[in-house]
Amino acid sequence: MSKRQTNILVFSPNLTDVEAYVESIRKEGYLSVQGATTFEEAEKYLPNTEVILAWKFPTQLLNKPISSSVRWFQSMGAGVNDLVTDPSIPKDMFITRIVDQFGTYISEYVFSFLLDIVKDGPRMRQAQLKQSWDSFTSDTLKGKTIGIAGLGSIGAEIVRKARAFDMNVNGLSFSGKQASLVDQHYFPNQWLEFVKELDYLVQTLPLTDQTHYVINKDILLAMKPNACLINVGRGALINEDHLISVMQSGHLQAAILDVFEKEPLPKGHILWSMPNVYVTSHLSGPSTVEGVSHFFIKNLKRYLEEQPLHGLVDRKLGY
């Protein structure tokens, strides 16, 4: 049986990715697919397009007559705060984000750093460089308390791995739907109470009006002096000026930052050179062609069968 066809536009500045996505979609029998990497190409293929799969799409095109046929915009990523607040995207256009794809990658990222810190990997590496037989007793994650802000699919996977290390696990979320996953659950009006007993605070929240700068000087100073902060959510969840000031005062053992208010993090920024800050280039949760294609094709089937879409964004909530 031939599949119902709809015009699809795949967009990314990366030509290799676009070609791979187009090929993956066509292999599933959806043949009316075009790929674009530039503003001009997107403008050329938008007329009669109904579905967009994109990363860094020139959204100013979406409020022009050439985009009047577009009904659904599928982002290639999990974060959509830029799309939610973009006035160029019509209110009646569906926006979906990738969900249930990043938990494994991000949780492994988190624990690779936590283990390195608790086992004092830098000391071991330094001893090897010096050819020094530095035998010491390292600490353990067992019995430590980790707090996870955001208990969606990513947060839930971090909880699961924390259990394997025999950690105490607390969580904070807006809905409380996943409260049963953690030992203690907190709501957003309980931030100070939430953070005060944590050894590790992991941020996985989406960026919304309610979460912008949710981590500020008051929250940071309420944490234990030797606690660690990990941000794998969005850069603007944390007031970076406050974080720098607090850490320069000697408060907090470490900050592990994969996301920043401005990306790429500018050369010369103080965060690059702070000895107790670990900087990575927004790589903890990669959007792979295989994973995104699989998610999109499953969602495309649902769209064509007029079933509810996975990852549908609620613009009022901001995610």
Rank of each mutant, 00 (worst) to 15 (best):
V18H: 02
D218A: 13
M274L: 06
G285Q: 08
T204M: 04
V313H: 09
P65S: 11
G171L: 06
Y278D: 10
P90S: 11
R163I: 05
S180A: 10
W133V: 12
V232H: 07
T288R: 03
Y30C: 00
Y213R: 15
M124N: 06
I270T: 12
W72Y: 09
P266V: 15
V202C: 07
L229F: 09
A236V: 02
T96G: 07
G155Y: 02
D134Y: 08
R160C: 09
Y45E: 12
S281C: 13
I52F: 02
I297H: 05
G233K: 01
L229R: 01
R97C: 00
E19M: 14
F136E: 06
I158V: 15
F136N: 10
E19V: 15
A222Q: 08
L192S: 10
I66P: 01
V10E: 00
K217A: 08
C228G: 10
T6K: 08
T208P: 07
G268S: 15
L83W: 05
G79E: 02
E306R: 11
A179M: 07
H310N: 15
I158D: 00
K91S: 14
E108C: 04
K144S: 05
M274A: 03
V232I: 13
K44E: 15
A254D: 02
S281V: 11
A222G: 10
I117E: 05
Q74N: 03
S173K: 03
A156H: 04
T37A: 10
K316T: 06
S135I: 15
L237G: 00
I117Y: 01
D139Y: 13
A36E: 07
E261L: 09
A162E: 00
Q184E: 11
T204A: 07
